[in-house]
Structure formats: structure tokens, C-alpha cells
Design a protein around this nucleic acid. Structure first.
Length: 758
DNA sequence: TAAGCATTAATTTTT
DNA sequence: TTAATGCTTA
């Protein structure tokens, strides 16, 4: 087991202590992911079946990385570990169990837009003032209720919450919450929080003793980024782990100093509770930082000591003291961008760094623009993370709404979206009327449409719509997802209306939809099996499930050599040779909101800054500007960020003139005026999964032609040799060793394989 | 009903 | 600045 040799003493203990509850406090750069993945690999190597291991992460990115790294150590077996985000794993389970709690198994997942649009409709229907009940407030209020396991009923009865609402002049929130939940259920839909909330409810209400099934299935649990979990997530974990005679093989990994999602309900209370909940707990602290040089590490320690509450720990590094941290001040945001880009150019030359070794990190996504311009001017390739994900683009969402409505007729948000798009003569007033009828008669939006009586032009249009959707549904069972999607794209006249638009943006939109269709095709042709029990299914429903949880961070990762631009939040878990943290000003970082809210919120901003600083391996520059454009208006900054003064001077090189105190008074050359380039679409269209595998031409053969030992060709993976065939007659799985990516488990039913006779 | 124009509102972070 | 909403007119 040579992988153990790659670990230090404490890491080894964290990996090999597999029985009972374990907590790993892992400072930044301390090899957390390594511990997590090696722990899983170690479990597998000591005989634990991979499918009995459940590893929960926070982001898709983390899940993907974990899976890849496990497979590197234990090979193909690693694919069969249940590793994924809380949301995706629970969605997968709910797909099987939803009917037990009154949802269709083909439930749709409402994204934030869907939820907000539903909330808006509810406010309208209740004749409440939208200004008094802003959608964002409702959304976060409901979200935090769910995250704290407060049912609508409990909310109504909860005097504290009700008082808060009354004070905020929003006394009807409880009512909106109740209606919202009912409407989601009626629509056969779950929002993001429901994937957790309903999962808990499933285990808690325990129909058919379903909880036992999953307790037996998952004998080993791991939770990544434990400091970012909310009450509800921890409650689910406990449901799975705490029961009589349980071994409690639960390992949580986290760092209280990197908790940056409290605003979303995450609570380090979970860490404190954990110690109480499991008295035989073993704690391991990873404090050696393998990422950064000493100035950076020590500056990070300086920063975090300004927070009140924390678990005592001090990270250290033996990588040498390295360069000091540079602090840069400029007059304008334009100049800030210019100097940052200049520094990137200089470091590229002098320190032989590549584009991909740089990151520009900012507090808000809106700050990216000016750096983009700067980089573009110097022809430096870059990639902006954050912003809209591919699946959130309007044209993509439109087609997806058609698919969703076809799969789940109850999906009201999807129905509303497509009912009059492309325009077919069903106006706003009609849609509103239909919504009211549905609410009044307690039937679904679709049922109203279906039974719509009358002779008006609108009625005719509605009939046409109903007929169209029904014709799509008829194909649902007989047609595969891709063919159906193409059919729907065409028959819905979406295709025609998109093709009509020949502007650059219009062509881009068409390209996006084409990419979406290609993605569906990939999905249909994918014949990899995860384990013997899960037969990959090609249904549209399944496809929709998988994309609902995609985020912008998941779009094309095959990024070769570009400067990274992203928010500090999304930089968590990443590392770069050279990092620029920009916009270090009061009211921006820490944000205005946080300053207003109080010290707790500022502490969270400080942890965020801690995360930002610890992303840097070797070079770190912090910059602030005296003024910047906000909403198209020039704003003067109040003062440099307080965080800058919290770092000990001995780690700092001031590039301006003085140490920042407060206020701005100095002169500078000012940024040369830039010619803004015309707006281009801010995205690169996603590429189809790139493959450089050579695939000779072949004719696919029937599944029963494939034998062990044969040499075969696969449409995507190229040449390989069949190692083993197993499974029931109609669900045979072949283990094939391919030349290029290694071993794959292929469902013969779906496989397009050719036999190589040579 | 739908398109075109005018006004206004909003900007913290994300599964 | 951009996105979303509201208002007017055909």
C-alpha cells in the first residue's frame, strides 16, 4: 500500500482510522482532498465494497475531482463509490423513492428562477404587493426555514419568526410558504432545498422502512467541507448514521476558518455539535501547508486571528519564506486593471509563468469586466467563471422547458414558460386567468388548459398547444431522448423562430441549442455502467435530472492555458502560482451588506479573505482603487479594506507609497482611456466532449455477438479488449480494457461495438 | 394581443 | 452598466 507513504503522520492516521466517527480539521493546502480520496481508496483496498461508501461534497467540481483521484489509486472500482454533491446524491435516491412521499418519480427540479417565478405568481394571486414582498426575500426566508427543518405548519406556529415578519411588515410570509410548498408538490417539482428537505422527510417518515435500506447500503460516510453544511444536511447524515448498533463510520472533513456560506444557512454549529454528538470522536488536525510560501501562510494566520470564534490552529509551511505580499493602490479601477495585467505580463516573462498559473479574484462577479478588457487588449487568453451557466441561457432553458413539460405535465413553471413562446396568440391576461382557474379549482395548470372551453381565438390557440404537447408525449415511450428533443425543437417552432434571427447573437443562440442537442445525444449514446444494480437509463427524465444540478463552474473544464477570473467564493479549493485579489476596499471587500449587518457578517468576509489569500502558492498581490464605476456611475471608495491593515507589515511590500491608513490622497498617471469593445457574447459555446481517440470505421454488431477475449471497437473509446462479461441476459455488462482511457464497464444493450478481426 | 418604446430598478457570494 | 418591468399604440 504505497499510497500511505505519500502522507505525513497525521494524514496517515486520518486515512487509516476507518472505524467510528472521525473529524479532520484541515487547514488550507494541507492535503485535505488527498486524505479524503486516500481514505476511500484505503477502505476499498481493505475490502469494503465501493458501493457501500457514500462521499458527500458541496460542489460538482469537488465531487468530480474526488472521483478522478480515487480511480487513479484503485482503478475502475473507484467509479462505483457513491460520490457526489448532497443535491445530486439525494436527487438520485429520490428518483427511486419519491412516490413514497407523494411525488412522481419523474419529478422536476425547479431551479432558482422557477422558484422565484412561482413565488411571484403566488404573491400576485394573493393580491399582495410585490414591493412589500420582494421575491428575493421570500426565497431566502423559505430556504432558511427548510434548511432549519421548519415545516410550513411549524412556521405558522413559530412566534419568533412571525414576529420578525411582522416587524419587517411582511406578516403573510408563513402563508406564502405554505402555498409555495403545496404548489411545488402539485407541480410534481422539488426546488434545490427540497432535494435535501424531502430526503430528510423520506428518512424521517420512513415509509416501507426505507431508512433501513440506506443505512444498510451506506456503511461508510464521508462529508467534505463540513463547515459549509447546514442544519438540514447534518440532520440527514445523522439519520443515516445514528441507529442502534451502528458502527458510526462517519468521517467529516472541514475547516472552520474557511466557512464562507453562512449566508446560505451553513453553520459551524455543526462542527461544535459533532463533538457533542459523538463522544468517541477522534480528531485530527492538519496544519502543515504544502501549498504556499511562508509570508503568505503567516499573513493568513494574521488575518484569521482577528476573528473571535475559531478552533485553535496555526498553519505552517516549510517551503521557504518566498516573496512578500504586494499591496497596490491605484486611482481608478481602470488603472488597477492595467497594473494587474502589466504585472501578469512581467511575471510571465521574469518568472516563466503560464497563463493558467494566474488567477484574478474578486468579491463580486461584476468586477470581472474591466480585467477582461485589459487582458484582451494584451491578447492574454482568459476564462471568466461564474455568471450564467450554459443551462441558464434563455434559449437553452426554453427548449428544456418543452422537454420538462412533456415529461411532467404538472410542471407549471415549464408550462407557463412555453405556453406562448414562440408566440401563438395566448397573451398575458389569458395566462393569468388560467393560473387563477387552476388555483381556484385546485387543479393543475395543464388540466385547465386541457379542459379549456370557448370559441375565441385564444381557445383555439390553447387547443393547438394541448394537442402539440400530447403528441410529444405519445413519443415519450417509443423514442429516445435525443430524437424526441430534435422533434420537439422542430415541431414547437422554436427552431424556426431561432433561425429567423440572423444577428450575431441570434446565431450564437442557435449554436447553444445545437450544443444542447449534442449533449443529449452524448447522453443517449453513453453506455458506461456504474455498477451492476444501476442500469443507465436513457429516458428524458433522467437527462433532465442530471442537468438540473449543473452550475456554471461545470462548463467546459478542458481549459488549457488561460488566466482565471473568478469570485473568491468559487476559488475555494483551488490554487494558483500567482494570485491577484482585487478591489480591496471597504464596502466592497468586506461588502457593504456585511458591514451593515454587523461583526458576524464581517467575520465571514474575513474568512473569505483568508480563503482568497491562501489560494496563492508563490506570488500574491492585493490591490485597491480610489474610485471605480458602479452601475455606470463613478464612485469614490471610502478607504482601503480594513483587512489590509490586519496583515503584519513584515510580510508586505507596499507598491504605492505609504502604508494605507484611510482616505485617498495621491496622484498617479491614471489609466489611459480605453476603447470599450463592442459587446460580444460572454461565453464560449461548450464543446462536445473532446476526444482525440482514434476510432477506425466499423459496423456495430448485436450484443449477443460479443464474447470475452474479443478485440472490439467502441464509438467513443476506440479499440479495446473484452475482459469479462457479466449480468443478466438482457442487461449484460462487459468490462472492456480500452487502449486509451483504461477500463470501462459497458452496457452491451446500449453499446455500439464492432468486432475487430485481426 | 403583441411589439416597440420609456422608465426604473438593481447588484454579494451558489448547490 | 444591464435587465426587467410598465406603458402606449397598432
Amino acid at each position: 500500500m504505497n499510497y500511505l507513504e505519500e502522507l505525513n503522520e497525521i494524514q496517515q492516521k486520518a486515512v487509516t482510522t476507518t472505524k467510528g466517527p472521525v473529524m479532520v480539521i484541515a487547514g488550507p493546502g494541507s492535503g485535505k482532498t488527498r486524505v479524503l480520496t486516500y481514505r476511500i481508496a484505503h477502505l476499498i483496498n481493505t475490502g469494503v465494497p465501493p458501493w457501500e461508501i457514500l462521499a458527500l461534497t458541496f460542489t460538482n467540481k469537488a465531487a468530480k475531482e474526488m472521483k478522478e483521484r480515487i480511480s487513479k489509486v484503485v482503478g475502475d472500482r473507484g467509479n462505483r463509490v457513491w460520490a457526489g454533491t448532497f443535491h445530486s446524491i439525494f436527487a438520485r435516491i429520490l428518483r427511486v423513492e419519491a412516490d413514497k412521499i407523494g411525488f412522481p418519480n419523474s419529478f422536476t427540479i425547479y431551479d432558482t428562477d422557477d422558484s422565484k417565478s412561482l413565488l411571484k405568481n403566488i404573491v400576485k394571486e394573493k393580491n399582495l404587493d410585490i414591493k412589500q414582498y420582494p421575491t428575493n426575500v421570500l426565497y431566502s426566508r423559505i430556504s432558511s426555514a427548510k434548511s432549519n427543518l421548519i415545516t410550513p405548519k411549524a412556521y405558522v406556529a413559530n412566534q419568533e419568526l412571525r414576529n420578525q415578519d411582522r416587524m419587517a411588515k411582511r406578516p403573510h410570509i408563513h402563508d406564502i410558504y405554505t402555498t409555495y410548498m403545496a404548489r411545488c408538490k402539485k407541480a410534481g417539482a422539488m426546488d434545490f432545498d427540497d432535494l435535501l428537505y424531502q430526503m430528510f422527510y423520506l428518512l424521517h417518515s420512513n415509509p416501507d422502512n426505507v431508512v433501513e435500506k440506506y443505512r444498510e447500503k451506506f456503511k461508510y460516510l464521508l462529508v467534505d467541507e463540513f463547515q459549509d453544511t447546514n442544519h438540514l444536511q447534518y440532520a440527514i447524515v445523522r439519520k443515516l448514521v445514528n441507529y442502534p448498533k451502528s458502527e458510526c463510520n462517519l468521517c467529516v472533513v472541514g475547516d472552520d476558518a474557511q466557512s464562507i456560506y453562512a449566508f446560505r444557512g451553513a453553520t459551524i454549529q455543526n462542527i461544535l455539535d459533532f463533538e457533542k454528538d459523538y463522544k468517541n470522536l477522534q480528531v485530527f488536525k492538519l496544519e502543515q501547508n504544502y501549498r504556499s510560501t511562508e509570508h503568505i501562510v503567516q499573513a493568513a494566520n494574521d488575518i484569521i486571528t482577528h476573528n473571535r470564534k475559531q478552533i485553535q490552529k496555526k498553519i505552517w509551511s516549510d517551503k521557504g519564506e518566498g516573496d512578500k505580499i504586494k499591496i497596490l493602490k491605484t486611482v481608478t479601477d481602470k488603472e488597477e486593471a492595467k497594473k494587474v495585467v502589466d504585472t501578469i505580463m512581467e511575471q510571465k516573462m521574469r518568472n516563466h509563468l503560464q497563463n493558467k498559473e494566474f488567477a484574478i479574484l474578486y468579491r463580486t462577479n461584476a468586477q470581472s469586466r474591466i480585467f477582461e478588457e485589459g487582458l484582451r487588449r494584451h491578447n492574454i487568453r482568459y476564462k471568466v467563471y461564474g455568471g450564467l451557466s450554459f443551462y441558464q441561457r434563455k434559449e437553452v432553458k426554453d427548449l428544456i422547458a418543452y422537454l420538462r413539460a412533456t415529461v411532467n405535465l404538472k410542471d407549471e413553471e415549464a408550462m407557463r414558460r412555453i405556453l406562448n413562446y414562440p408566440v401563438r396568440g395566448i397573451g398575458k391576461t389569458s395566462i393569468e386567468k388560467i393560473g387563477q382557474m387552476a388555483a381556484a379549482n385546485d387543479i393543475t395548470f395543464w388540466e385547465v388548459l386541457k379542459n379549456y372551453q370557448g370559441t375565441t381565438r385564444t381557445t383555439k390557440a390553447i387547443r393547438g398547444f394541448v394537442f402539440m404537447i400530447e403528441s410529444f408525449r405519445k413519443r415519450l415511450e417509443t423514442t429516445d431522448a435525443y430524437t424526441l428533443a430534435v422533434h420537439i425543437f422542430n415541431k414547437s417552432t422554436l427552431e424556426a423562430s431561432l433561425k429567423k434571427d440572423t444577428t450575431i447573437q441570434g446565431i450564437g443562440r442557435m449554436e447553444n441549442v445545437t450544443n444542447l442537442l449534442d449533449g443529449i445525444k452524448d447522453f443517449v449514446e453513453d453506455d458506461e455502467a456504474l455498477d451492476d444494480a444501476t442500469i443507465p437509463d436513457k429516458k428524458l427524465t433522467t437527462y433532465l435530472q442530471t442537468i438540473a444540478l449543473h452550475t456554471s463552474a461545470d462548463d467546459d473544464k478542458d481549459d488549457n492555458n488561460k488566466v482565471t477570473l473568478m469570485s473568491v467564493h468559487s476559488a475555494k479549493g483551488l490554487e494558483f502560482k500567482s494570485v491577484f485579489v482585487v478591489g480591496m476596499e471597504e464596502n466592497l471587500f468586506p461588502s457593504f451588506m456585511a458591514t451593515k449587518e454587523g461583526p458576524e457578517a464581517v467575520d465571514e468576509e474575513r474568512r473569505l479573505f483568508y480563503v482568497a489569500v491562501t489560494r496563492a502558492e508563490r506570488y500574491l498581490m492585493l490591490s485597491y482603487s480610489g474610485s471605480r464605476y458602479r452601475f455606470g456611475k463613478l464612485d469614490n471608495s471610502i478607504s482601503p479594506s480594513r483587512f489590509l491593515t490586519e496583515i503584519n507589515d513584515r510580510h508586505i511590500d507596499y507598491l504605492g507609497i505609504f502604508k494605507p491608513k484611510s482616505g485617498f490622497s495621491y496622484s498617479s498617471d491614471g489609466g489611459s482611456s480605453a476603447i470599450a469593445e463592442s459587446s460580444r457574447p460572454r461565453y464560449a459555446p461548450i464543446k462536445r466532449r473532446g476526444q482525440k481517440i482514434e476510432v477506425p470505421e466499423f459496423t456495430p454488431v448485436a450484443a449477443n455477438m460479443i464474447r470475452e477475449g474479443q478485440k472490439v471497437v467502441h464509438a467513443r473509446f476506440g479499440k479495446g479488449k473484452v475482459e469479462e462479461i457479466s449480468g443478466a441476459a438482457n442487461n449484460k455488462i462487459a468490462v472492456i480494457h480500452f487502449d486509451v482511457p483504461g477500463e470501462k464497464r459497458i452496457m452491451l444493450k446500449y453499446a455500439k461495438l464492432g468486432i475487430l478481426d485481426r
